[in-house]
């Protein structure tokens, strides 16, 4: 058992899979010799060589195209898009090519690839380097979407993503890279499409993702002191979505809150709110409430960014208000 940082867990997970299967390759900008701009791929080039850990030009379309063509013909590549914001310059390859090729060809091709990317805010990087874009990906049929919140999940979900025969967008949260957690020795393999109950509770269900999981847990501790018992669920996987775990909890507590870092309109929680309204409406005691970043680009100044990302205080206030409705 070792204490690993989230960023070390990324390379641990990749190394585990590259050692197991020589078809697994890693490509991206500055990932090899430099170990990645977020140092999530440190040591991999030394361990697996430059044939398998490839430093590319600043060519996001070429990177993802290479991953796609290779996945169609026998390799199992992992490609890095440095900042998730940069998906915007290669979204064609993700949405029009990778996501649809199997379907359009009536199952003739399989797309076993992973795109890992640094997602999310809290690092004061401004509107072009802070976005949470997991809801963009969720909106596209043919993509699997995961967002680990702990080092252990990083390793296990990376393994599951690499072993998946479908394309997986693996969103690392930039604000979590320095965080630490216990990661057991030996092989770790998780499962896509499973949410995790991080804190059981009976009064309200709070769903969160990535950086927001820790904030939801902190809020739950505060609310517990007031006698409000909150269940916090780490959604982990948006596609496939573990509706069983989510709906069971919502039906039991009768109260649903989502904590979403994405801007408000069509955030991931909106879909879950809609499913809950359809399928467990009569179990709800109060209206569903979404706690999100407002519908604005993210500002850079620390005071402003802190004011707009969902905070522990905002979660506490909103849940308290909802519970006493």
């Amino acid at each position: 058992m070792a204490q690993l940082s989230y960023r070390e867990a990324v390379s641990r997970g990749i190394a585990q899979e590259m050692s197991r299967d020589e078809r697994v390759m890693l490509i991206g900008e500055d990932i090899g010799g430099a170990g990645g701009v977020f140092k999530t791929t440190g040591g991999l080039s030394e361990q697996f060589g430059r044939r398998r850990v490839v430093d590319t030009p600043i060519s996001e379309q070429a990177i993802l195209g290479a991953a796609m063509g290779a996945a169609m013909t026998g390799l199992r590549p992992i490609a890095e898009i440095m900042f998730a914001d940069f998906f915007a310059v290669c979204w064609d390859i993700v949405v029009n090519e990778i996501a649809k090729m199997r379907y359009m060809t009536n199952g003739q091709v399989t797309m076993p690839l992973v795109i890992k990317s640094g997602n999310g805010g809290s690092l004061r990087m401004g509107a072009q380097h802070s976005q949470s874009v997991e809801n963009w990906a969720m909106a596209v049929p043919g993509l699997k979407v995961v967002t680990p919140s702990t080092p252990l999940d990083v390793v296990g979900l990376m393994a599951a993503a690499v072993r998946s025969d479908d394309p997986v967008l693996f969103f690392e949260h930039k604000g979590l890279y320095a965080s630490k957690g216990e990661v057991p020795d030996g092989e770790i393999v998780d499962e896509l499409g499973k949410a995790a109950i991080r804190r059981p509770g009976k009064d309200a269900t709070v769903l969160a993702l990535g950086l927001m999981v820790g904030r939801a847990l902190d809020a739950a501790e505060e609310l517990a002191r007031e006698g409000i018992d909150v269940e916090v669920i780490d959604v982990r996987s948006l596609v496939p979505l573990d509706t069983q775990t989510l709906l069971t909890s919502i039906s039991r507590t009768g109260r649903l809150f989502t904590v979403e870092e994405n801007p408000r309109l069509l955030g991931w929680g909106a879909e879950i709110a809609s499913i809950a309204a359809d399928e467990c409406f009569w179990d709800l005691d109060v209206p569903i409430h979404r706690i999100t970043t407002p519908h604005i680009p993210l500002p850079s100044a620390d005071s402003l960014e802190d004011a707009v990302l969902p905070s522990v205080d905002r979660i506490v206030q909103d849940v308290r208000k909802g519970v006493y409705l």
């Binding site: 070429a62 195209g65 290479a66 991953a67 796609m68 063509g69 996945a71 169609m72 013909t73 390799l75």
Partner: peptide, 9 residues
């Protein structure tokens, strides 16, 4: 771009 991937493989 995709053709490059098949060639790489």
């Amino acid at each position: 771009c995709v053709a490059n991937g098949a060639a790489w493989s």
